[in-house]
Amino acid sequence: MSERLWDILVSSFPRLLGYGLKVTLPLTALSFALALVISVIVAMIQYAKVPVLRQLCRFYIWIIRGTPLLVQLFLVFYGLPQLGVVWAAFPTAVVVFGFNEGAYMAESVRGALESVSRGQMEAGYCVGMNYFQIMWHVVLPQAFRTAFPALSNSLISMMKGTSLAATITVMEMFRQAQVINGRVYESLALYSETALIYLMFSTVLTYLQRWGEKRLGQYGAVK
């Protein structure tokens, strides 16, 4: 490897990593938090078969799952301003990623809720709890455990997906790689390096997932 190339890689690494830590990961964390809230609400509405709201949730899932994420990003960032709705790039990315992954996660959570045996709910009623108390203390924790691997997958795929935010001008890790590359024209080396950092991040997340599964697994209950 030429010395020049080596220097480029060495000097860009901390920059890219910096953008990864300061933008990509926070963007992932915020979007995931939003997606988690949305998915639990949407899943609970469907689980409880709330009329009207339930149809609304199906509609939301239908739209989101039926259209590409990239198109959703463009629609909100470049399209909505024509209606007078102008958001900065970063919040736009958080909202679009959150609502997008939220739809997929809602299906995981709903499946997990439905896998909790009805007897758990009935036993809760018999000790005098109301619906929300039972959901909170009994059903949701069990569903969370069941949904945990699927939710972890969502988190990892979301982390990688934040690179799409580059297309709506968010200066995150991938866009930073593009910027550096614009100066030095070393696509193969720079994008490999970027890929490596994403790989590091997802490896850590995978490790966290395993740790989480072990912790949640300790009551050895729902299989």
Partner: peptide, 19 residues
């Protein structure tokens, strides 16, 4: 009424996530 009654199920239905 439920505060004054208790129910024991055929298949126990203990809360699986609780000790």
């Amino acid at each position: 009424i439920r505060r004054k009654t208790a129910f024991v199920f055929q298949n126990y239905n203990l809360f699986l996530n609780k000790t």
